[in-house]
Simulated assay, not measured.
Amino acid sequence: MRALLVVNPKATTTSARTRDVLIHALASDLKLEVATTEYRGHARDLGRQAVQRGEIELVIVLGGDGTVNEVVNGLLCDGPAPDVLPRLAVVPGGSTNVFARALGLPNHAVEATGALLGALNSGSERTVGLGLAAGTPGTDDAEVPARWFTFCAGLGFDAGVVGRVEQKRERGRRSTHALYVRQVVRQFLGDPYRRHGTITLRRPGEEPVEDLALSIVCNTAPWTYLGNRPVYAAPRASFDTALDVLGLTRLTPSAVTRYGTQLLTSSPERGPRGRHAVSLHDLTEFTLESQVPLPFQMDGDHLGLRTSVTFTGVRRALRVIV
């Protein structure tokens, strides 16, 4: 099998030694090409080129969720083919690695490499669904190009946290869970819309859900990890269904304390619930609209401000080696 290994050398837990071990192990079983990313968006370009060449049967990613997202968007630059879906494998190299861990892969690169080799030898793979987000026709965001996400997206509060973390990382700070927690507190203190939400969720044939202060779109569960602790914003979300949404209509101190505690103690059977919580399951198509521009993120990548985003849940989009 001819494969392309895409390596992000700047990923949090990726080292030259890890890369060399992975290349040596994979080269014994595959006709392997190796490409190292050099700029933001390079992994997307490499994924697109692999599809266009037509001879690459598998793309392997060594990196974090951002690198995985870029490669997926390259592989699906023309959308999923009706007959043959692109094939992807992931070796986690980031700080959180939500997509890889949600697939059941080890969070250690060497262990994940062993699992990958075993799956390749046995022919083990699964088809997963993905989310697609695009600017809404007829709005100021209409020209925003469509983009795929693997595990989550968010408009509003959580995207603001992601944006703050990215600013810190650009100044040389490491991406740690402690850094995220501090930015959650700062986002809460600085968010002018936390008491009166500006977001409306619209879906065909249903009444709109209004006044959301937080909106998290999940393609799988867990939503994220705090160290080794999985956090479930939408416990029923799955790679086998369309998209789930968690919305909160208030982010007062008491509400944040209550729902934050519920997130920290969440499980596959129980997520956030209460008077100000909205949970929706298996949505194929819906739109999030805001009265004011709000931060938007996909797979932990801050994408600027948006006023309207249309989401589509695609149940069969990608084959993953697991």
Rank of each mutant, 00 (worst) to 15 (best):
L246I: 13
H108E: 14
A3W: 01
F296I: 06
R40L: 06
C77T: 07
E33G: 10
V320T: 04
R275E: 15
R87N: 06
R202S: 11
L88F: 07
T261Y: 14
A242K: 03
H177L: 12
T127L: 10
D211T: 10
R44L: 02
S28K: 13
L189H: 04
Y232I: 09
R202E: 13
D141H: 08
G114K: 11
G154D: 01
D45S: 08
R44I: 00
V184D: 05
W148C: 00
T18C: 11
A89M: 07
G163R: 08
T284G: 13
A213I: 11
P192Y: 03
R203H: 04
T127D: 05
G66P: 10
V21I: 11
R53C: 07
N219M: 05
D299N: 06
L26T: 02
T36M: 08
S238V: 08
V181F: 11
Y225Q: 07
Q49E: 07
P253G: 14
L116Q: 01
A213E: 04
S124Q: 15
S175R: 15
E143L: 12
T37C: 07
R316F: 00
P235G: 12
D20M: 07
A43E: 01
R275Y: 04
D299P: 01
A234N: 10
M298L: 12
L130Y: 12
C218R: 04
T18F: 06
G138W: 04
L189N: 09
G41F: 01
G156H: 09
G118W: 01
Y39L: 01
T265C: 13
T14P: 00
F157E: 04
L46Q: 02
T249P: 03
T176V: 10
T220S: 09
G274E: 14
V314I: 08
A233S: 10
G304W: 03
F286M: 10
R17T: 12
V162S: 02
S238Q: 09
E57W: 00
R194G: 02
V51T: 15
R250Y: 03
E289C: 11
Q297I: 00
A134V: 12
V34P: 00
Y259F: 15
R306K: 10
F296K: 06
L58G: 06
T265A: 14
V61P: 02
A237C: 11
K10V: 12
L132Q: 01
S290D: 06
P253I: 13
A112V: 11
P106G: 10
G63S: 05
N8V: 03
V128H: 09
T18Q: 05
I60L: 15
A277N: 06
V209N: 02
I216C: 07
R48V: 02
V128K: 05
L58A: 08
H196F: 00
M298N: 00
P295T: 14
S122Y: 03
H42P: 03
H177S: 13
D65W: 03
T176H: 08
V6K: 03
Y225C: 07
A109S: 15
G63T: 06
D83F: 13
A159F: 03
E269C: 00
T307H: 00
A27F: 00
Q262E: 15
L201W: 05
V128A: 08
E170H: 13
V292R: 11
